[in-house]
Design a protein around this nucleic acid. Structure first.
Length: 572
RNA sequence: CGGGGCGUAGCACAGCCCGGUUAGCGCGCCUGCUUUGGGAGCAGGAGGUCGCAGGUUCAAAUCCUGCCGCCCCGACCA
């Protein structure tokens, strides 16, 4: 490719709106341009790289027997109504205004299930793995971080159809390994965490994560034991509060100006652990009192999972007073005004000697015994894990920010049941198809790679994620006849040997070419300058290390072949 | 959706608080000459509805109101 004819609008500076390295570099290196909030155009160089990612994904999906589809982004809303996801997804789904009944698909479980219902009628038709690489539309409340969170993005989404739960396990396992291979081949450092299924429904799910300050997820990891989980589902080893010897009588006492656990601890000297914090949530329209130990934070995802609904929200002040008798700061499990459901975190199981609100503003009870003084409907793990606690295997855990690259779900029968996608098993019984769902954010792969592979000068691509095999820089190529003839010969020769070469034949100064080459980040730069050419040589610069060496012009093809063979044979 | 910030030439910004010449700087772009291994030099030149609408004023990029757009923090995130 002649750079003089190729559209790579590099920039010296980008505006202050780009705050993370990948966003800045994708703009500077001429990979993308923003069109609207969360909407990007990929320019030729960027799209070339995106296609490399997609090729790797295709190869690995095909390897596990995936069949590539192309499903429509325009979907009839009716099918989404049948699975109840119009409400579940809510404002995140784009609705078409001037053609009633159409929406833009944010994901494709419904359409896949629609086709499965049409044609998968027998256990003999399964298993199937269906996938596509296609544009998704999600009306994100706040797009951010360049292509990391957009309103339109490319996803590789796949779906497995199985006759049994064991079959689903196998399809899931295949995806697990395919995803590992995809991200390993892309040269990305990642880790895998147990995750929440959220409103997707289903049982098991895992996320493929890249540690990054730009990430939107918090993950709990313990390197010693290998424990890794999204904070939404993470658990830790914390001793329960338990019971104390002296079980005194329940006692009410005034606590003016003490609305928080910290206030109680500071004003009265209580042990924070023996304070039972109360929060009230409205879960599927029903009030539920939730008791947490001390200042433990309620994990809404866990709460959501326990009650098997995403329809949860904290109660308003007015509701608190109506259901409990007091406003926040004075609520507790004893003396509730109305009979509402009461659940507590596992750490509080059967504890006594507790302090909690009296459901009278400005009063608390002490010496509460959960077994004696109130009724707890159930105990669950509801707390949010904290840094420094021990993971379930007993080793210290830490919390890191991460970008979600991929997510794999065991969906089960949620979609096949709601859409009636059934088959006849070997006994002639009608059964719902058992499904899995698996996604990869394609642009995120590129962005994460750049986050992990750049320096102050620009991007550092590594095979196989390279836009070209080499960047040929013709210095003073317009005026120097020697450089011109030789560099064009090199260019034509290497191309005929099967290499993709970006040839900087522009009428630019050497400095401009060096800086653009470092910015674009092709791993090998071939620098053709007059002096070296006269000795039959060119200089090779390795983008990553900055090391340089002289190579005979006649052996350049061999040089490149050897260089890339080292990657192919895994020597590097 | 709550909080904050921004919108001036292709790009990045200053000017606005305190209204008043022909709206400014750098980069980029065009022409010519010179230069040519780390973002060249000189000379000349083109390019602006100051986001949109309304208002105040003799006079608005500047003050006021509304709207739109974009970014950041938070909430949300199938």
């Amino acid at each position: 490719m002649l750079q003089s004819e190729y559209f790579i609008p590099t920039l010296k500076e980008v505006g202050s709106e780009a705050v993370i390295p990948s966003h800045q570099l994708m703009l500077k290196a001429g990979l993308v341009r923003q069109v609207a909030a969360g909407v990007f155009s990929f320019l030729p160089l960027g799209y070339r790289l995106l296609k490399k990612v997609m090729e790797i994904i295709r190869e690995e999906m095909d390897r596990i027997g995936g069949q590539e589809f192309l499903l429509p982004a325009l979907n009839p809303i009716e099918i989404w109504q049948q699975t109840g996801r119009v409400e579940a997804i809510g404002d995140v789904m784009f609705h078409i205004k001037n053609r009633e009944g159409l929406v833009l698909a944010p994901t494709h479980e419904e359409i896949i299930t629609f086709h499965a219902r049409q044609h998968i009628k027998s256990y003999r038709n399964m298993p199937q793995i269906w996938y596509q690489i296609q544009t998704k539309f999600r009306n994100e409340p706040r797009p951010k971080s360049g292509v990391l969170r957009g309103r339109q993005f490319i996803m590789k989404d796949s779906y497995s159809l199985d006759t049994s739960w064991e079959g689903l396990d196998q399809s899931y396992e295949k995806h697990f390994h395919a995803y590992k291979r995809i991200f390993e081949r892309c040269g990305i450092k990642f880790f895998i965490v147990g995750a929440s299924s959220g409103a997707m429904g289903g049982s098991k799910s895992q996320e493929f994560m890249v540690e990054s300050d730009s990430g939107e997820d918090l993950c709990v990891i313990s390197e010693e034991s290998g424990y890794a989980a999204n904070l939404e589902v993470a658990t830790s080893l914390v001793p329960p509060v338990g019971r104390i010897e002296d079980n005194f009588e329940l006692e009410i006492f005034p606590t003016p100006n003490s609305k928080t656990i910290d206030d109680l601890v500071n004003h009265f000297g209580f042990d924070e652990k023996r304070c039972a914090k109360s929060v009230v949530y409205i879960i599927d329209s029903e009030p539920v009192l939730i008791l947490m130990r001390g200042n433990d934070e309620l994990n809404e995802t866990k709460l959501s999972a326990v009650f098997n609904t995403t329809n949860i929200r904290p109660a308003e002040s007015e509701e608190l007073i109506r259901f409990t008798g007091a406003d926040h700061g004075s609520i507790g499990p004893v003396n509730l005004k109305t009979k509402i459901k009461v659940v507590a975190d596992n750490l509080l199981k059967d504890a006594n000697g507790l302090i909690s609100g009296a459901n009278i503003d400005g009063y608390h009870y002490k010496n509460i015994d959960f077994k004696r003084d109130c009724h707890i409907d159930a105990y669950y793990d509801l707390r949010t894990v904290r840094e420094g606690e021990l993971c379930p295997f007993g080793t210290p855990l830490k919390i890191v920010k991460a970008i979600e690259l991929g997510h794999i779900f065991k969906l089960g029968t949620k979609y096949s049941e709601s859409l009636g996608a059934t088959f006849l098993d070997a006994q002639g019984n009608e059964q719902p198809i058992i499904m899995g769902s698996y996604g990869i954010g394609v642009e995120r792969v590129l962005a994460c790679f750049i986050e992990q592979n750049h320096d102050e000068k620009g991007i550092i691509w590594k095979y196989p994620l390279i836009p070209f095999h080499a960047h040929l820089l013709g210095l003073n190529v317009i005026k120097s006849q020697v450089v011109k003839n030789t560099s064009f010969d090199i260019y034509n020769n290497l191309r005929s040997e099967g290499f993709d070469i970006l040839f900087d034949d522009r009428d630019e100064t050497a400095g401009v070419k060096f800086n653009d080459a470092d910015l674009i980040g092709i791993p090998i730069q071939i620098i053709a300058g007059e002096k070296n050419i006269k000795n039959g040589l060119v200089e090779i610069k390795y983008r990553e290390s900055g090391n340089r060496e002289l190579v005979e012009i006649s052996s350049l093809a061999k040089f490149l072949r050897d260089y890339y063979n080292r990657y192919e044979t895994g020597e590097k």
